[in-house]
Design a binder for these strands. Structure first.
Lengths: 338, 338
DNA sequence: CTCAAGTATGACATCGATGTCTATACGTCC
DNA sequence: GGACGTATAGACATCGATGTCATACTTGAG
């Protein structure tokens, strides 16, 4: 009786060739549809391969062909956030059209982990690396960028490094949110923002503040809340804001997590404040939530496209694509001040 | 002036060794912390590596070490569905603890595509393959399963193949949803289900029907709707159901997409029917939607765990883990019949 | 009938790392 | 001082495929 734990090794091309009674190279030619293989030989080789359950060893092929894989890496924040998963989906679809596969890894918003994941991807010789960065400083990638591994930054601009990027029109979107609420008659508008050190948040805050300045409104200033980083914290913050006297009559939340928190914090109120949230989300229509929307799948798709162009040999200065935003009015942002 | 399109090749270990004035093998030893390297030699090698910007070629290493990568593949339906992304996230976290990386690809619910993605993964010599299958027949995987590539099926049982699986207690969850609505006094309960050919849907339908039978209720029968496959279709179906006379007083939707559609279809109604949805979702609390919840991250985690055990050499009969469900009452499922 | 061109095949080197085996230098112990 | 153990380092084969070049055998044109 054979030992149970003998690992069955996959047959190699050499074995296929032996069974077919041809040389290694001939077997390779036959299976790769190369010219100059006699029909009968080709059939014999294919039969042998089928019989043995042969499967090409992509690792060996890649080593021989140029030590570079058909993989593209994505390091993102947290796949459970629908924003990231929509982006990842856009990337994956675009890459698949070019026969590339996507490897993903979460950095859990941890800069150290991000770095080690980037390392792991580079060791695997990914063809390109897409990053939704958490780290503030990307200078350590500079050497890599010059060695033929293209980088594309998503959602957040590269810092200390010239690289392609696909960004959202954060300032513009936030400005229009501010203007939208001003137009509905609001003055005491609360701003609930995530970590201000992150560039997109910074831009959203600035855009909103710009709209207020331009309108000569400063009644929002007591209601500025930044560094609100999760749903719970946002919920609590909104409750606290609404308990103030005078309370704000409107709220602008600068990402989908904070919007979720705000909706929880406002739940059950008979006189809810107006609300506009950055990022569209599922069921916003049912909830009647006005949002600053943008095409997340397109963001991923464009990033994948930039990466593919670099892979295909495009060289030239770093490019930045900006995804536009638009307000989708669903009711919550059009409520007048009490 | 050098040509612009010269691809810069990464330095190899041979070059590092040459620069450090040692042999290839010594350089390898130094960088891999192997014993018996003089401190001064080690330093010289590391300096040379830094200077050249050397990075290990993981492909070559893998080929030498056993032609198997540190990658685990996941073929899933659609990453933009929060169900899949939560599962993927659970998998990824678990794998990372063992130094494994996750490659993902969407099959877009297409059986042919699923097969070709599985092929691509196997050629890359993934250590294990996790599948949330769309294909009905998985027999074609049987050969692979016997050749050392462990498979784990998620959410849907393997067909024509003995393999590990992690499933949800679909029948139990659906039964409890039915009982929950019966307990609230409903009799005319609509069932809105996705494609009945998919095993999980089949089980959910059966569970619900079982609850009705057990209670001696047959008033639900005119309101059975299956093969409702997307949000729009669900919305339309619910509208049509509510236009019937007599209309159902309660609705059970068998997945998150359908629940979304139902919520849209019920929007604006002053006398909404009771609603219970299978799968929990973000903001269900804000919307007050009663759901059959289950731990999606745990589903992914358990699947990754099973895969890891197989990778580590565990052999034995196929195992099936069932993730339990629980009703979370939030109001919509407790509304009494009109 | 001869020679050039074309077809089918095989031998061998190669991609970039690691495993095995061997060789040298240097102490140490008796 | 000779034998021996140990630390260090290198030569070489190897993983599984593909690229290059060489070779034997057909054809077809002149």
């Amino acid at each position: 009786m054979p030992a149970d734990d003998v690992t069955v090794r996959r047959p190699t091309l050499t074995q296929v060739a032996a069974l077919a009674g041809v040389s290694l190279k001939t077997a390779s030619r036959a299976l790769n549809q190369e010219p100059n293989v006699a029909p009968s030989t080709g059939r014999r080789v294919r039969d042998a391969a089928d019989l043995l359950g042969y499967r090409l060893n992509g690792i060996a092929r890649e080593l021989r062909r140029g030590a570079t894989s058909a993989l593209v890496g994505l390091v993102s924040g947290d796949l459970t956030n629908p924003f990231y998963s929509a982006v990842a989906s856009g990337i994956e679809r675009e890459l698949r059209q070019h026969g590339l596969l996507l490897i993903t890894a979460n950095n859990d918003e941890d800069a150290m982990l991000e770095r080690s994941l980037v390392d792991a991807f580079l060791e695997r010789r990914v063809r390109a690396l897409l990053v939704i960065p958490s780290a503030d400083d990307h200078e350590y990638l500079a050497i890599e960028g010059n060695r033929g591994v293209p980088f594309v930054f998503l959602d957040r601009p590269p810092d200390g490094l010239a690289a392609d990027a696909v960004l959202i029109d954060n300032a513009g979107g936030a400005r229009s949110a501010g203007e939208h609420l001003l137009a509905a008659g609001h003055r005491r508008i609360a701003l609930v923002a995530d970590l201000a050190r992150m560039a997109p948040q910074r831009a959203r805050i600035d855009g909103f503040v710009g709209a207020m300045r331009a309108a000569g409104n400063d009644a929002w200033e007591p209601y500025l809340r930044t560094d609100v980083h999760d749903v719970r914290h946002a919920e609590r913050t909104v409750r606290e804001l609404l308990a103030l006297d005078p309370a704000p009559t409107a709220i602008f939340t600068t990402n989908n997590r904070l919007t979720t928190g705000a909706l929880r914090g406002m739940r059950g109120r008979t006189d809810p404040p107006a609300l506009v949230g950055f990022d569209d989300f599922d069921l916003a229509d049912v909830l009647g939530t006005t949002v600053v929307a943008h095409d997340m799948t397109a963001l991923g798709r464009e990033a994948a496209r930039l990466a593919y162009e670099r892979i295909s040999g495009h060289s030239g200065p770093a490019r930045t694509i900006v995804i536009s935003t638009s307000i989708i009015a669903r009711g919550s942002g059009e409520r007048p001040p009490r």
